[in-house]
Simulated assay, not measured.
Amino acid sequence: MVVRERFQEDLKELQSKLIDLGHMADEALTRSLEALETKNVELALKIMDEDAKADSLEEDINDFAILLIAKQQPVAIDLRRIIVAIKIATDIERIADFGVNIAKSAIRIGNEPLIKPIEHIRQMHKLTSDMLRMSIEAFNDEDIAKAKQVAEMDDQVDSLYGQTIQDLLKLNQTNPEQIGQITQLSFVCRYLERAADHTTNIAENIFYLVKGKRYDLNG
Rank of each mutant, 00 (worst) to 15 (best):
V3K: 03
Q8T: 07
D10A: 11
E13G: 06
G22L: 14
D26G: 01
E27H: 10
L29A: 12
E37A: 12
T38S: 07
N40C: 13
E42P: 03
I47W: 08
M48Q: 10
D49S: 06
A52T: 13
L57A: 09
E58P: 01
D60C: 07
N62H: 10
D63S: 14
D63K: 14
A70D: 01
V75E: 06
L79N: 05
A89M: 08
G99E: 05
N101D: 04
I102F: 07
I107Y: 00
R108E: 01
I121G: 12
K126S: 08
L132K: 14
I136C: 01
I136E: 00
A138H: 02
A138I: 10
A138D: 00
F139I: 11
A151S: 06
E152I: 15
D154Y: 08
D155W: 13
D158K: 02
L160N: 00
L160S: 00
G162P: 03
Q163A: 08
L171Q: 12
Q178C: 12
G180R: 14
I182Q: 10
T183Y: 09
T183S: 05
C189R: 11
C189K: 12
E193D: 04
T199L: 06
T200Y: 02
T200H: 02
A203K: 06
I206W: 03
V210H: 03
G212R: 14
G219E: 14
